[in-house]
Nucleic acid binder design. Sequence first.
DNA 1: TCACTACCTGT
DNA 2: CAGGTAGTG
Length: 391
Amino acid sequence: MSQHALLSASCKAWRSLSCPRSELRLDLTLGCGQTFRWRETADSHWTGVMRGKVWTLTQTEDTLWYYVYSHNNNPGPENRQKGKVEEEEQLLGKMSKRTTCIKQEDEGLCTVLSEPDKKEEELLRDYFQLDVKLGDLYKNWSTVDPHFKHTANIFTGVRLLRQDPVECLFSFICSSNNHISRIQGMVERLCQTLGTLLCKLDDVAYHDFPSLQDLTDPCVEMRLRDLGFGYRARFLQQSSQMIMNSHHPDWLQSLRSTPYLQARDALRTLPGVGLKVADCVCLMSLDKFEALPVDTHVWQIAKRDYNFAPGTSQKTLTDRVYKEIGDFYRKLWGPYAGWAQSVLFCADLKKFQKLKEEVLSEDKTELKIDERKRDRCAEKQKTQKKKSKRT
DNA sequence: TCACTACCTGT
DNA sequence: CAGGTAGTG
């Protein structure tokens, strides 16, 4: 039986990326409600499914550690004995086996990672959008917005994920009139029921997110109703069907190269997709960083912390107020307004309130010995790789 | 354009 | 009521 990987147990089996905490905080980024599929499977270890693979992530002060599990996704006769296959699956503990050296002809230099390794590092960089320099953005937002500056001191490293559009869309269709914990459960059941099994870790099954095809089957609505999706069951089935019939399977993905408002309008033609859900999908999976989802909660923040008053005093969050709030923030924060908003949103979540007190009372001179050790381990791995590449 | 309501289910 | 949407006046 395979187990969840632990950094402390097998440092060498992990791979790493240089990435300071100020650029990425896993706990905040994975727990703030933009994605619903990551769980803290051990202290500061996050396990989830991303780009069709099962990952465990953890981090130390300057390093992001990742672990990719192997799984058998070739449908074949041996799949009848799934249980057995899984039992035999081992953690990818053998770095040396995987890190074959690739020579580059001209310079005698060669890359440190093998092809699949490089690909996985690239997947991770892409998913976390590590090329976006969060520290610089924070600096800019802090200059123009004192309130942001205040909360940014504590909530560093909150970053938008570049999610798969299908997963993002169908997860957020589930989010209507709903709260995070229940959405998590629903998405989990959705994957368990309709998604492909990837692997099992400590008796926990990890499934891929269902494909459009999987969601289009007419019996999906009834199955999801049985799973407690309520009226959203119909939305999910109908939306996928509409994409498959009226568009093409890659239609969602193609919206990445469509201008923001146009993409949002396109999404809004799908059942169960209003302004808020469309903006979530735009911001979190379609590269529209100016998109700014406004829910009642964000509206409260605007009123409370920014003294926001709509042009005409509305009682409900009308389309008009929705747009006014978005425009207000875009004017304040600029083209990455959606990113800035996610920081404040995160800071306002109940589950992170304790952070505010912890940070204030924390003894800042405390040495994080474990982490330093691991950071050194990362360095060591890198130099070893450099050495081995010359042979 | 705005207000109101029903829609599913769990806490 | 909850991190909405769609349908109706």
